[in-house]
Design a binder for these strands. Structure first.
Length: 323
DNA sequence: AAAATCGTCAACCGCTCTTAT
DNA sequence: TATAAGAGCGGTTGACGATTT
């Protein structure tokens, strides 16, 4: 199947989203929940195709998205995972629940790829430790296991926005994002006619107690940031919180649960690992999260998720570029 | 000062897979 | 079982600011 029919319409608008459009979209999702994207343009009057609405939500407006600079820890994880999984951005993003696959993909293409290239040329005599690890025969096995594991996101279950319309608190936080986002935007631009007060969460039914507001709500700024203005330190989620999400306590709890559930159903699965990567990725969809649960951590993944080792990679990567 | 080039990233495109009927 | 719709993925594009010439 090809392009959605709605995208063939002549009156479909393209290009950057305006704050007004975002408000309409967020308000609608707040009321109806994400999903059923085809009905969104119809019901909201947005001149966008359903796909565009979905992407705008998942990549930009969805609560819990961390924006701004990637930490060395995140960089290290991305490098590790990319070397293990290849360009399976959705799978990689499942390990970095606050980052979208699009963000990771962009960051890889614009930053990390160059860094690694420089690093490799700088130390052409040495071999990349990741490659060394992967060249090891046993690592091949681990690589396959990790690839499988990537299809069953671990950390994303903590933060991923599932299709649960009862999660009004999260929707409210999204509206609040828009409000705060617009306030920041208004400060630096006098051209818009949008009044921040008109989109404040409190005026759009945001009276729910907001559990996630303080810890998760972030303000994705770039879309509205006047060109040339430096991104602010908009990351509300601290590294500590982020790290705790990926902590071994969390992981091990999930692994224990997985062990219990899958102890009888995992036999012979190693021999079935030859399915193609595309299928792996499909399984990594958030919508499928409830159907699959994570396999146990391999030693390689422990190493991968270990802050110390990731930090070392981060430091290592920084070295050639400090000057 | 102006033009050319580079860097960044939101958004789009085309495809595949899943789900509902 | 067949088909269409919905949803998601990876790759690519284009706009725009920053930097260099």
């Amino acid at each position: 199947m090809g392009r959605p029919p709605c995208c063939d319409k002549v009156d479909i608008k393209k290009g950057p989203w305006t704050p007004e459009e975002d408000i309409v979209l967020v308000t609608y999702i707040q009321e109806h929940g994400p999903g059923n994207w085809r009905s969104v343009p119809t019901n909201t009057g947005l001149l966008r195709c359903s796909k565009s609405c979905r992407l705008r939500w998942t990549n930009y407006l969805r609560p819990g998205i961390k924006r701004g600079n990637f930490t060395p820890h995140e960089e290290g994880m991305i490098v590790h995972l990319q070397s293990l999984l290849g360009n399976k951005w959705a799978a990689i993003a499942s390990y970095l629940p606050q980052r979208t696959d699009n963000d990771i993909k962009n960051y890889w293409n614009t930053h990390l790829k160059k860094k690694i290239r420089k690093l490799q040329t700088a130390s052409s005599d040495d071999h990349d430790p990741h490659m060394l690890a992967l060249s090891d025969h046993s690592a091949q096995y681990q690589r396959r296991k990790l690839s499988d594991m990537a299809t069953s996101p671990l950390a994303s279950t903590d933060l991923t926005f599932h299709n649960n319309s009862s999660n009004a608190n999260t929707y409210a936080s999204s509206t609040e994002n828009i409000s705060r986002l617009l306030q920041g935007w208004m400060r630096s631009s006098t051209k818009t006619t949008v009044e921040p007060s008109t989109v404040d969460a409190s005026s759009s039914g945001g009276s729910h107690g907001n559990i996630v507001r303080d810890s998760l709500a972030t303000i994705p700024l770039r879309g509205y940031r006047p060109k040339g203005e430096k991104p602010e330190g908009e990351d509300i989620i601290s590294d500590e919180v982020f790290d705790s999400i990926l902590s071994f306590d969390n992981l091990n709890t999930k692994i224990s649960n997985w062990d219990q559930k899958n102890s009888s159903s995992d036999k012979g699965s190693d021999d079935e690992d030859d399915h193609d990567d595309a299928k792996d990725n499909r399984k990594a969809r958030p919508a499928d999260d409830h159907k699959s649960s994570p396999p146990p951590l391999s030693f390689l993944e422990n190493w991968l998720l270990d802050e110390a080792s990731a930090g070392q990679v981060g430091e290592m990567m920084e070295l050639p570029f400090i000057c």
